[in-house]
Amino acid sequence: MARSAVLVTGICGRLGHRVVRALHRERPVIGLDRRPSSDLPQDVEHIQADLMRSATRQLIRGPELGAIVHLGITHDPHVPSAERHTRNLLSLEKLYRMAEDFEIPKLVVLSTANAYGPRAGNAQFLTEDAPLLGSGRSVELRTLVELDMLAQSFALRSSKCKVVILRPANILGLVKNAASNYLRLPVVPTLLGFDPMVQAVHEDDVVRAISLALKADVSGVFNIAGPPPIHLSRALSLLERRTVAVPHTVAQAALGSLFAARVTRFESTELDFIRYVCMIDDSRARRLLGYEPACDLKETLLAVDRERWVG
């Protein structure tokens, strides 16, 4: 079979590692990442190059590729936000061009359910049709919304390439995203008088969803949720965290100055995630992808602590 290889971007990230490990036994995997790799499986080819450079394209043997999985969204805080924004959008654009030119039949883009945005008027469970209102004032979130919308426009335009957009709930695990980092804080701040329901999904379940998106002859947008939702307070007590409740106005002001002083990477607009619901209905993925989370609530939550005892 000529077209069996899959190109995975961002393989040196924590999630990228796990995706590569899950896929390489079934089909050839080519990884693309600027960062140097460590402990990748022997049979995985790592192209250490920047997608933004035009020379990179020559390194990729397009006709061999059967699919592209795009995980390489950068959150690098050392890069100025405006540059990070263009970098992320251009990377996806370039991947799409590649898919078009080489007639690669599938492009899987990992978006996020946070793109829907936490809002007071949100339905308890948002379906894929809900508008992406997560932009607000946060540059980080706006980038994610624009990436998702760009991928959607590709899906509309392309005739040969099937585009799959996955919108997982808060991914928990070894990954270093806002949700996992928040739960790993030594003392977890919450908002006084607010205790929204929250959803999380284990990183391994996301990896499963990605391989299902590659196998099935499907395209479109899929929400990916984990075990049933619970109140934030209950999640924190299951994790045995010490918490401190802060009034919203105080938290907003404090986080604003801490962010400006570069003490924290949490933006004050992200406080809405622990104030309002932003949860998804993943029945479409269950129906069309055959997806089902394998990790239960406890496993999913405790995944953020795994590093501590695995070492």
């Binding site: 007071a120 008088g193 205790d195």
Partner: peptide
């Protein structure tokens, strides 16, 4: 009402 959701304590109470 949607606006009641933005009230601390009240929103949590109604929800629970």
């Amino acid at each position: 009402e949607k606006w009641a959701v933005s009230l601390p304590f009240a929103s949590t109470f109604f929800n629970k």
